[in-house]
Amino acid sequence: MHAAGVVLPPVIMLGLLGVAWQILCSSPDSTLPPPSKVLADTHELIMNPFYDNGGNDKGLFWHLLASLKRVALGYLLAAGAGVALGVLIGSSKWAMRALDPLFQVLRTIPPLAWLPLSLAAFRDGQPSAIFVIFITAIWPIIINTAVGVRNIPQDYRNVARVLRLNGGEFFTTIMLPAAAPYIFTGLRIGIGLSWLAIVAAEMLIGGVGIGFFIWDAWNSSLISDIILALAYVGVVGFFLDRLVALSGKLIGRGTVSI
């Protein structure tokens, strides 16, 4: 398709929504600021994302970076453990019977419900937030990996048996590539959930982080700052999703279509 055909429709839509917002929020007794006021209020924040006045008084870049670090650590741990557990319950009938009911119950627990418990266990905000990310992201990774491993076609298993591939060879040459489309579906859902959970967790644990920034702005009645932060959260979330999709394309060697 023509480049203009891809770029123009969302740009026009964004413009229309901006105009509607401006009209709706322009009355003096409106509770939310119109876009013109948001831009004027947050001009400083937009232009100086890197300032650091010590403590929690930092530019948005530092808040986002702190949040991304927590997500990266929690998510990578979840990806490692999730794929390993998914392979286990996908390939062993008994592991499946023993663990699957447990996972089905645990995965319905909302991310933030884990926070008090992890604070009690770790007695520190940082590892608690990372644990919340971990426990949020791991379930879709486990479940999708297990489905992928269970769905490896019998044909490929027969090829492996005729060639007498050992466990390790089967894992790397057949299981991982065959399950890759499922694994990456799980990883994409996982990264989305991680980014959803981090904002909420940071509102409660405080310190540097985009979630804390939003909560702090609310407490100071800086509504324009909140709106800017939300836009940043959305854009970063979008790029995280694309990043996982792209790595799926590269690693999946053509088997992952996104």
Binding site: D155, Y156, N158, V159, R161, V162, L163, R164, T173, I174, P177, A178, A180, G252, R253, G254, T255
Partner: peptide
């Protein structure tokens, strides 16, 4: 009583690894 490369199979649906 076990599969092995001394009895190589050409499968009906080729069974090539697509990746």
């Amino acid at each position: 009583h076990q599969p092995g490369p001394d009895r190589a199979v050409v499968f009906q649906n080729h069974s090539l690894l697509p990746w």
